[in-house]
Design a protein around this nucleic acid. Structure first.
Length: 344
DNA sequence: AAGACGAAAGTGGTTGA
DNA sequence: TCAACAACTTTCGTCTT
């Protein structure tokens, strides 16, 4: 191989490396110019740019500066690979309310090796054994801690059965902790309060589950859950807005195998009914059921009252009552007539 | 026969005296 | 503490397609 060829090869390699560096720099820059979706008050455009270098929130279209003092939530250090990131980051995993000690306790490993992987002496082994024993005893110490651990595992079990997201579990666990702190468990079962806390967590996070759905995975009756929920909601002054019927629509529609068009129509129906103040004081479940029933007929994907009632957990009678009220107000009679549903 | 309809009685909870 | 009350459910008979 000739000398000149070697030189050329190296220079190509160097050029490639430079290109890679340039690209990572650009990428870094892009990351710092993160786009967010807000409506610009000046020109109405929906594109806004966050510039962390200048600490500004700027509209891309008209240049209007919405905020000139924004905070960069990212770390102030830079890391180029995994090792550096681990070394520089000063925090561990987030503290969580779903573990009885908030996930902050220390665990002593059950391996008889030191941190270098060497075996430890038999004398130290005995000491280590005693340390482990006490660690375990201290971790779940008094009755309060044990109850908390039990309640939180129960909470997690139910949340898993309902496949609820993480934030709901955190909110529920926090609600339960607050109930414990206020001594609200006295005279009530741990399971009852835990289930009520789960229900409260669902409400708080806007992931409504009906009492029926929760009762299906709980070990206490629906009545008990409702009663306990009302109690802790009052004591902890959690005053949530009544659930909007629209919150139920997408889930129930999907359970009924209804299309997106029906979801939209049902939402619209609920909105219009609300505007006329028709549904004030009526149970959100019944309203949602009626809206879905009407929407399914209008969109030509008819479901029977019984099918809807089954999924929603209300009765046919309730659906009928709500749907009559809505139909009367909107003059929908002829469009809702089942015999004509094929044509609409 | 299935689905929709409606009347009547019952249920669990709130409100106001 | 009790009765009145609103919303909803259960039950059942009738009508429609």
């Amino acid at each position: 191989m000739k000398e000149t060829e070697k030189v050329r090869e190296i220079s190509v390699e160097v050029a490639g490396a430079k290109e890679r560096i340039r690209k990572t720099r650009e990428k870094e820059k892009e990351e710092r110019l993160e786009e967010i979706v807000v409506e610009c008050p000046l020109c109405g455009s929906r594109k806004l740019i966050r510039d962390y270098k200048r600490a500004e929130l700027v509209c891309e279209d008209c240049g209007f500066v919405l905020d000139d003092n924004i905070i960069d939530p990212g770390p102030e250090w830079r890391a180029f690979d995994h090792d550096q990131r681990m070394e520089r980051s000063r925090t561990g995993p987030p503290a969580t309310y779903t573990i009885h000690d908030k996930g902050l306790s220390t665990m002593i490993d059950w391996v008889d090796k030191d941190s270098y992987g060497k075996a430890i002496s038999s004398q130290d082994k005995a000491q280590l054994y005693r340390l482990r024993k006490w660690q375990r005893r201290i971790r779940v110490n008094d009755a309060k801690e044990r109850n908390l651990a039990f309640a939180l595992s129960e909470l997690d079990r139910m949340a898993s059965a309902l496949s609820l997201p993480r934030d709901v579990r955190e909110a529920s666990a926090l609600a339960y902790r607050r109930a414990v702190e206020k001594n609200l468990i006295r005279g009530r079962s741990i399971e009852g309060v835990a289930t009520a806390a789960l229900y409260a967590g669902c409400r708080e996070c806007g992931v409504p589950r009906t009492l029926n759905e929760i009762a299906a995975v709980a070990r206490v009756s629906r009545k008990e859950i409702g009663r306990t929920y009302r109690f802790i909601a009052r004591e902890l002054s959690l005053n949530f807005m009544p659930i909007s019927p629209t919150a139920y629509v997408p889930r129930f529609c999907s359970a009924l195998n209804l299309s997106e068009a029906v979801v939209t129509k049902a939402m619209e129906t609920i909105r219009r009914a609300n505007e006329k103040e028709l549904m004030n004081g009526k149970g959100p479940l019944g309203v949602a059921a009626a809206a879905i029933y009407i929407a399914s007929i209008i969109r030509g994907e008819k479901r029977t009252q019984r099918e809807v009632a089954e999924v929603v957990g209300a009765t046919e009678v309730t659906i009928r009552n709500r749907y009559k009220e809505i139909a009367k107000e909107f003059g929908l009679e002829e469009r809702v007539d089942p015999s004509r549903s094929h044509f609409s």
